[in-house]
């Protein structure tokens, strides 16, 4: 009897591999979900709160617009941050020393200061001085610069994790430096950095909420406004959580899928 229970609730190891039967996984997920549901339903049931979803529902269009703006800004800065991160990572391997140190200083400054301050400085000082008034452009760029610093460290670590023997092998078969990066280094780096990269992208999406302070009309700002109009705080912010999850979950799922696809032992 006890062995049947343990079969349902525990992963069994066979040698080095783990054996997860389908029903075991299903039971595990349901139990975990039930546990969480129990805790939160208890917490919410204790709440003395007059729910008024109708008031918030009237502003559904606002939520949608904000969500789409967040999606657009995140997508733009995601692409830009990859480019910036790659350039910063490569700059640190550059033979031209000023470039190398520019890369280092950029990374330390960005990683060492709050995003909030960066947004304010870039929007009110830097962008203003260069005559860039578009807060969406500045917002997306600031986010890209912010995430780029982290991404460059992820890429740098990935490049360094490709062994010296691989580089030597590439040299031995007569590849140029560019070809070595293109055909030997990057394909291996890609697979290794996917998990941290996906985490960084999820952070970037959530960090975009800070752009509300320069009045970028994104998801969080809209939720704040709805809250101000309706005084329905929970009803304004809970959809916010769901909206961000709808963006971040696909990213981590995509990353898992790609990880499986590019799997090889090394």
């Amino acid at each position: 009897m006890s062995s049947r229970w343990s079969e349902i609730f525990f992963a069994r190891s066979k040698g080095n591999a783990e054996e997860l039967p389908l029903y075991g996984r299903a039971v595990g997920i349901v139990v975990a979900a039930l546990l969480l549901a129990l805790i939160f339903s208890f917490a919410f049931s204790r709440l003395q709160y007059g729910w008024d979803w109708a008031a918030v529902y009237r502003y559904r269009q606002k939520f949608l617009t904000g969500w789409l703006v967040t999606l657009a800004i995140s997508a733009a800065s995601l692409v830009a941050s990859l480019v910036i991160g790659l350039c910063a990572a490569l700059s640190q391997r550059s033979a031209f020393l000023p470039l190398r140190y520019l890369g280092k200083i950029y990374i330390e400054l960005i990683r060492g200061t709050p995003l909030l301050v960066q947004i304010l400085v870039f929007f009110y000082v830097v962008a203003d001085a260069f005559g860039i008034g578009n807060r969406y452009l500045v917002g997306a760029l600031t986010l890209a610069l912010f995430a780029g610093a982290y991404i460059s460290e992820i890429i740098r670590a990935g490049i360094e994790s490709v062994g010296e023997s691989q580089l030597e092998s590439a040299r031995a078969i007569g590849l140029t430096r560019c070809q070595t990066y293109r055909y030997v280094v990057f394909p291996q780096v890609m697979r290794r950095i996917l998990p941290p990269l996906a985490g960084q992208f999820a952070s970037l999406i959530k960090d975009s909420s800070l752009l509300s302070i320069i009045a970028v009309n994104e998801f969080t700002l809209n939720a704040q406004e709805v809250n101000a109009f309706t005084y329905s705080t929970m009803e304004s912010y809970l959809p916010l959580a769901v909206g961000y999850l709808a963006l971040t979950l696909p990213i981590s799922m995509l990353s898992r899928y790609l990880e499986r696809r590019y799997r090889y032992a090394s």
Binding site: Q166, S169, I173, V184
Partner: peptide, 20 residues
Amino acid sequence: IRHRRGIGVVFQSFNLFPHL
């Protein structure tokens, strides 16, 4: 690079590219 292209090297630890 020209020189290396004219020579075949086999290493102790094989050094094949693991992703290919």
